[in-house]
Simulated assay, not measured.
Amino acid sequence: MDSHKNTIKFLGTGGARFVVSRQLRHSGGIWCCFNGKNILIDPGPGTLLRCLASRPRLNPESLDTIILTHRHLDHSCDANIMIEAMTGGRVRKKGIILAPSDALSGHEPVVFGYLQEAVEKVEMLRAGSTYTIGEEVKLITPLRHRHSVETYGLKFILGEKEVSFIADTAFCHDIVEQYDTDIIILNVVLYEHPVHSTIEHLDYKDCRKIIEIIRPKMAVITHFGLTMLKKKPWKLAEQLSLETGVQVIAAHDGMNLNI
């Protein structure tokens, strides 16, 4: 990827257990190149393979930071192998890991202890905290999401540009207030919630509500579950664009986005 551009590559756009276990969409997470820093978000199953199969090929040893928004398998399964690759097989101490506390410690930490020792810095994500990646990338985790495990969305400040990643969550009005940026990327797992559902994910109506209120310059929907795939996300994106007047794009596996 061109290190002189701010670029987002969707290594995978599948979300939730059935899409991921059947690999109806890949689950490799998102690779960002922001102000010359390579950042990998949510390395789910198959991330290493998707990097090596990418054209042009993405070199895991060029990574500067790996971020887990939360510990669920479709967001973290390849975290350890990607850390191993980032550090050249632990030959050199390199890179940053950013993750919630329950992904780094406790009864079943996602990131192995010996790999936490292989990087330059490990930081726990916390609500309302700010992190720096190099000198020109600032990351804010505005609030803890409403999800079954400790989960945080991401707000990147890139000079005059701001990009938000709205991770898995139930809808709440705080999300609208905290992710008011020109570009928003939303995990939209469900087309609609089943009756009496307690599933803590955004559905299509939640997504439309967020876009209508924030009115970003661009919204990208991704992380699709079965019901979203059945409704054809690209058609839903076209519908959202017409309904809201905002440019809405449905991400697809391998898609590059220049911002």
Rank of each mutant, 00 (worst) to 15 (best):
G12C: 02
G128W: 10
M255D: 06
G113S: 15
K94V: 02
T132V: 09
S101N: 11
A53Y: 12
C77M: 13
I8R: 11
I259G: 02
G106K: 07
K235H: 08
V220T: 00
V246M: 06
L52T: 10
G44W: 07
H4Q: 15
I81S: 09
K94T: 07
S129M: 11
D2I: 10
T130P: 01
T132H: 07
H145F: 01
I185W: 01
E160F: 05
Q178G: 00
N59S: 09
C207K: 02
L242C: 03
R90M: 15
A103L: 07
D78A: 13
R144V: 13
K9R: 15
I66P: 00
K9I: 15
I213Q: 14
D64H: 08
G254N: 10
I185C: 06
A251I: 04
D174Q: 15
A127D: 09
R17E: 10
T7Q: 09
E135S: 11
D168L: 11
Q247G: 00
E120L: 11
I96T: 14
S76T: 06
T7D: 04
L73A: 15
H72S: 07
I259D: 04
H145Y: 08
L229T: 02
G95L: 01
P194I: 01
T65R: 01
D102Q: 11
T141K: 03
A16F: 06
Y131N: 04
H173M: 14
A127Y: 09
K209D: 06
H4C: 13
I66L: 10
I96S: 02
L63K: 02
S105A: 14
A118E: 07
F224Q: 04
I221N: 03
H107E: 13
K232F: 13
D253F: 03
D203W: 07
P45L: 12
L24M: 09
G134M: 06
W31R: 14
K235A: 07
C77T: 15
A251K: 00
L48K: 12
P43D: 10
G95K: 02
D64P: 01
S76Q: 03
G15L: 01
K37C: 12
